[in-house]
Design a protein around this nucleic acid. Sequence first.
DNA 1: ACCTGTGGCGAAACAC
DNA 2: GTGTTTCGCCAC
Length: 867
Amino acid sequence: MVSRLLEEYFEVEEGFEAEYEEELYIPEKVELKPARNTGVCILLSVSYSGEAKKALLKLYDVEKRIMHFWYDDSGHKPYCLTDMNIEDLKRSKVVSHPGFLGFERVKKFDVLKEREVELTKIIASDPLAIGGRRGAIRDLLPKAWEADIKYHNCYIFDRQLVPGMFYKVENGKLVKVDVEPSGEESEEVLKLFEDQVAIKELAKEWLPLFLAPIPDIRRAAIDIEVYSPDPDKLPNPKEALYPIIAFSLVDSDGRKLVFLLRRENVESSQPDEFPQDCEVRFFYDEYKMLEEIFKLLCEYPVILTFNGDNFDLNYILHRALKLGFSRDKVPISMTAGENPAALLASSVHVDLYKFFHNKSIQGYAFSNKYRDVTLDAVAEALLSVRKIQLKDSVSQLSYAQLASYCLRDAELVMQFTKFNDNLVMKLVILFMRIAKMSMEDVTRQGISNWIRNMLYFEHRKRNYLIPRKDEIIAVKGQAVTEARIKGKKYMGAIVLKPPAGVYFNVAVLDFTSLYPSIVKTRNLSYEVINCNHPECKSNTIPSTPHWVCVKKQGLTSILIGMLRDIRALWFKPMSRKVQDPAKRSLYEVVEKSLKVILNASYGVMGSSNFSLYCPPVAESTTAIGRYIITKTIEKAQSLGLKVLYGDTDSIFIYEPEELRIKELMRWAEEELKVDLDYDKHYKFVAFSGLKKNYVGVLVNGEVDIKGLVGKKRNTPPFLKEAFLNFVSLLSKVDTPEAFERSKTLIRNLARRVYDRLKERRYSLDELAFTVMLSKHPSEYAVSSQHVKAAKLLMAYKKNVDSGSIIRFVKVKGEPGVKPIQLARIDEIDVDKYVEHMRTTFEQVLTALGLDFDEILGVKSITSFFNK
DNA sequence: ACCTGTGGCGAAACAC
DNA sequence: GTGTTTCGCCAC
């Protein structure tokens, strides 16, 4: 049982196996709990071993049927896998044990039978992804399980057995797919790895995942509207007190339909007022309408919603139960827990709200194009189309207005998966292939779970025992470096302090995917860091006591290195080179998805929630990063280059000389084994003198604004707008002389904003600060302004919770703020706003050598205000 | 049940 | 009054 890996890299005590075996413990009372999703797993929440196990099983009369028995992450809750079929399970004593498979759960399995057909379609449509829900394909699973267990006979991950990405369904059976790389392209890519044996072998297995075509899965987007007597309050799905008055569906083939519930006192509409190309159906009976909705939900392999987990599907389910549907007639079920998911009986439900909410998706796949995750905001950012803006609440709309409104939402949701050549669906499927997760899981779970699953898969493939978190910490230790910021675990990157002022002709160099490159070239991986070979101890990590194995390359080092290389050497260049739009789009999607994984791969190593959490690996990564940028700056200076600024992996060089830059790049490649690339060239950069804080105008006229207050989400719109005008004046500047001329314009602009503010000629909307609540207002340690505003809103019977966006203005008197809904323009505290204006503008003015007070003559005026 | 990391800035609240 | 802490948002 002790794997090769464990013996080699951990100090394995003599009798390791016996340790578990000999610790006999026979509990008097056994608690049996259901294991989620696996159906035929029994979870015993007790310690067990040899004789104890037997006694225990005898107690429950199931000993003969127990096939396998494994530990879970905690090491104390072993799983039993049984080979019992459902009928046996139902009859067995175990089943009737309180807390185990209750009646309802068994019943659910019967429902599952019907789901297989549709799920099979999805799996079959993309054999390289594992698809569908595990429970739903349970009859197909045993074959995969056998293979899995035989092949990886050491550990079963988190209540699931991964059937493997290399299976597809044929005639109702799982069939192994031949994954030998075929085709010229694979060969061509593999040639790039001639000198890296381990990486080449792994790339052989992974390339099909990226090169195989991505299926266009048939799907439908849905949306509902619910009647509400209070237009400010969203109806509660658990109570489902009010009728569903509209339902819309838009499918991937272009079919559009709307169901409307006839109600009293609703304005009737002419046929031509309804949306065109759309089937409209009226119902007198909500029950009937729900029946029709359920039929539709079962027609598509994938159903898309925006917030369907929390609202739409949840509401439909509870409304149906309230109207007298029995549970087995409703094809929707909610998972248990605080953050439940709505699952469909015969389809996969993708809640795009959850997917778009994922920080990695937001940042790296969509480069922060949207900030608020609302249907309206995301649609505007990605599709340039908005929701239909309503003056009245949905409950007051005419039938035609309601139909248009509801349909638009479903259209937007469908469009999310279609725009940019099905980008979102393609990303989802690629993430399924990379993480070996189902569509439902991959769209709901965060990046750390994707990476965990990806790594676990590679462990099992190699027959490695997967250690627990506490085992890694015990053997490899905690972080030793001290963070600059209090409360952080270890030291991070270096940021240079830039000189305040404007600099013409600045080149920016950066290290391409610095951290993944470090992980690869310096062999960073939890099992090989601080290994127990005496001869490795001299291979130290700078400014840490850690060392790294020189005998064997670690798993994460190979895997992350391989992903980095195929992105950098193939998919990134190809996504720029290839002309054929379809091919190009595929390269772009693969490139994007790899970027997402790579960017998070370092972070998770330093995250205590991550199951392979290894602080020494995380701090070694940043330590080497610091070493690399420091050495590069030194080298640049010795070459006579002037380094203005740098942050983590970038270096700003003033008046660069091509030959010296080339020499620096060559040196970095040779000495440090990292690619130093020429990133961009600024016509000029204006530094405020603060770190992470500057404006630059590129040679093509594009403007980069970094970290300045004027661009932050919480800054009031009037300042953002003024700031943008300010920057656009700046972007027209070409020469130092033009600066002098632009100063008058800048002065006028600042003056105008100031006067307007003073005369209160801005609306409340323009003055509003927009801040997100990161937790419920009651949970805050300090009552900051947005929390105060939120509490005022709550007192005004508004629903406010973690994630809510609070808009407030600053007013005179206590408590100094009011939510925008409750404020009047004459209450505004003008002085506070002048201060905000000052900081916003000063960040750039100092760079230009201008003074805010001087420009406005503010000093005399503020003193006037103070009287 | 959910959760990648550290560094840095500004505003306001809190602690003394 | 002051220094410190908390919070949100951003850069990388």
